[in-house]
């Protein structure tokens, strides 16, 4: 049963990835005109350079073969060559990946810690002042997009108060964390509301369940009931929404890294669009999509650990 389930999920994961990568790859064919001219937009290519691009992308091959070459290359870690850096896309992205990963992880930690705590408090004090205050603040934060958060944080904490740097990603572990503090907060602000509200909603729903009432009727203390019967049961939706956030966070790095002048994958994406470096854009888009799909597949596979009914194939929450 479980093996079948895992197999099914993996099959579905692969299918989604194949379709998504096809979408990323064939999007180029939406652009009318000669693909060589599209790829070399904004440059004055010599005939040799043109020939090199045709050779490199296999432009003289039928579309499906081009796709399989591209996919096949990726399995060997070859994402093609960057037009702006005259270097392998893998190297270009690889250099910038650690700082972006750090940014996303720091931001995710802030979101989950603040969101879960705030949501839990709100659920336990539902309808009271604490609940209303938390909801109002979270909702207001939810309306602050990362670019607004970035410039406000820069203006206040970097320029006015001079507590944090406004630029760059620092050297060494602690310095990097110091440099990434404001950017990760800027990203986290808008997303806290989702985790906060899903925690609250899920906890409130579980609190009203009859089994909680039964547990109380059996002489268990309130904290024990909340820990064993409310929080544990409420985890499922929190994980699901958490998995969904990954996509938003990965894209938000493009804005936050640009605002804080961090040389990460997000700012590389923007830079590559600006410099018409399509191979890099394609690779980053695929990277984001893959991270999202894989994260959610993991969340999905972990579900039976939280909810034994999922293992038995009974959909029901």
């Amino acid at each position: 049963m479980t093996i079948r389930r895992v197999g099914g999920k993996l099959g579905s994961l692969v299918l989604t990835l194949v379709l998504a990568s096809a979408l990323v790859f064939f999007s180029r064919f939406l652009v009318p005109g000669d693909p060589v001219n599209f790829l070399l937009r904004g440059r004055k290519p010599s005939p040799e350079a043109k020939a090199a691009v045709v050779e490199q992308f296999g432009l003289d091959l039928p579309p499906w073969e081009q796709y399989f070459r591209w996919i096949g290359g990726m399995f060997h870690g070859d994402f093609g060559r960057s037009l702006q850096f005259r270097d392998a896309v893998t190297t270009v992205i690889g250099d910038r990946l650690p700082v972006t990963a750090g940014l996303v992880i720091m931001s995710a930690v802030i979101i989950v810690v603040v969101g879960v705590i705030a949501g839990t408090i709100a659920a336990l004090y539902r309808g009271r002042f604490a609940d209303r205050a938390i909801l109002t603040v979270l909702t207001a934060f939810g309306a602050i997009p990362p670019f607004v958060g970035s410039i406000v944080l820069i203006a206040v904490f970097a320029v006015q108060l001079r507590w944090f740097p406004a630029f760059g990603s620092g050297d060494g572990f602690l310095d990097t964390i110091y440099h990434l503090t404001l950017p990760s907060i800027a990203m986290a602000i808008a997303f806290m509301v989702l985790i906060g509200k899903v925690t609250r909603m899920s906890m409130v729903e579980q609190l009203s369940r009859e089994h909680v009432h039964v547990a109380t009727s059996r002489g268990l203390g309130r904290l024990t009931v909340i820990r064993r019967h409310v929080f544990r049961n409420a985890l499922g939706p929190i994980f699901t929404v958490g998995g969904m956030l990954i996509a938003g966070l990965l894209v938000a790095t493009s804005i936050v890294e640009s605002a804080f002048g961090i040389a990460g994958v997000g700012s590389l994406l923007v830079q590559s669009v600006n410099r018409l470096d399509f191979p890099v854009v394609q690779a980053i888009v695929l990277l984001v999509v893959t991270s999202f799909v894989v994260t959610n597949a993991i969340v999905d596979l972990l579900e039976p650990i939280i909810d034994p009914r999922a293992a038995a194939g009974e959909a029901g929450r």
Binding site: T16, L19, L23, S27, V270
Partner: peptide, 23 residues
């Protein structure tokens, strides 16, 4: 459902950025 699954893997801002890269 499958089509939506695939599209949902592309965050809106990412699709928008890609559209700029293309057009």
């Amino acid at each position: 459902g499958r089509l939506l699954d695939v599209l949902l893997a592309f965050p809106a801002l990412l699709i928008a950025i890609m559209a700029v890269a293309l057009f």
